[in-house]
């Protein structure tokens, strides 16, 4: 699997989609909000630049995790998996290589947004907080990697990409990554707080205030991860 993993890593870091959509776009969006427009909600108490930094880093990482599925769907559609099926690489080795390379691939999107926050938007945090943000956000997007695999083994080709972009935006808006959940109506806010993107973000937001993740965040994220992983495993077995 090592040889194939190396190839996947090279592809991930070279991919223009990853570079533009998952790293460039969150950084640009972040700078637009903090340095160009003044969109901090009225009566907002916290450091809006730091808050948005966590939101956008989570948003970018979430995309990186979710789009594992886009690649799987594409490679299923064009017959690459039929080629792999006749090599010694077992199907679970393929999925593992995809997940590991995606896990590595989300790091640049996280680091890029954090760097933009520190260097361009004047976010100041203790060193320990910076160090904690990267793994917290990274762990927070695990459910999306599982969801991506489920998508990848359900839809083929471009259909998967379109469906995932829709889910990506819907979940990130619902999770308060675009606008804080405090701006939402009550009913929507309740829904938001049980959504995976919100809980992924909340671990980072709490870290800004020096607080550890809440038990409920971990529970909700673990629940979604298990659910999506079960879904992914089911779809994967069906597709073989």
């Amino acid at each position: 699997m090592g040889a194939y993993l190396r190839l996947e890593l090279v592809r991930g870091f070279r991919s223009p989609v990853n570079l533009v959509m998952l790293t460039g776009f969150p950084v640009v969006l972040y700078l637009l909000w903090t340095n160009v427009l003044d969109v901090a909600p009225r009566g907002w108490q916290g450091d809006a630049a730091a808050y948005a930094m966590v939101s956008m880093a989570t948003y970018g990482a979430m995309g990186g995790a979710l789009f594992v599925g886009g690649a799987i769907a594409l490679e299923r559609g064009n017959g690459w998996l039929r080629q792999l099926a006749v090599t010694p690489l077992p199907a679970h080795g393929y999925v593992t290589a995809k997940l590991v390379s995606a896990a590595a691939g989300v790091l640049p999107s996280i680091v890029a947004v954090l760097a933009a926050g520190a260097l361009l938007s004047g976010v100041r945090l203790p060193a320990g907080t910076w160090a904690a943000l990267v793994p917290l956000i990274w762990v927070g997007v695990l459910p999306f990697a599982a969801l991506g695999v489920a998508f990848g083994y359900t839809l083929k080709g471009q259909a998967a990409t379109v469906a995932m972009i829709a889910v990506y935006f819907a979940l990130s808006v619902l999770g308060g990554l675009w606008l804080p959940v405090e701006t939402m109506p009550d009913a929507m806010r309740t829904l938001a707080e049980y959504s995976p993107a919100y809980q992924a973000g909340s671990m980072g937001w709490r870290a800004l205030a020096g607080q550890p993740p809440e038990g409920v965040s971990l529970a909700v994220l673990a629940g979604w991860t298990l659910l999506f992983a079960a879904l992914g495993l089911w779809r994967y077995r069906r597709a073989l």
Binding site: A3, Y4, R6, L7, V10, N78, W80, R82, Q83
Partner: peptide, 26 residues
Amino acid sequence: VLPQDSGLLEDVRVGELVTAVAGMYP
């Protein structure tokens, strides 16, 4: 095996692809 209807990865170089697949074999 040379399958009849298999596809290839499009975004890699030929050498990279052959090297990666060769690396799967003992």
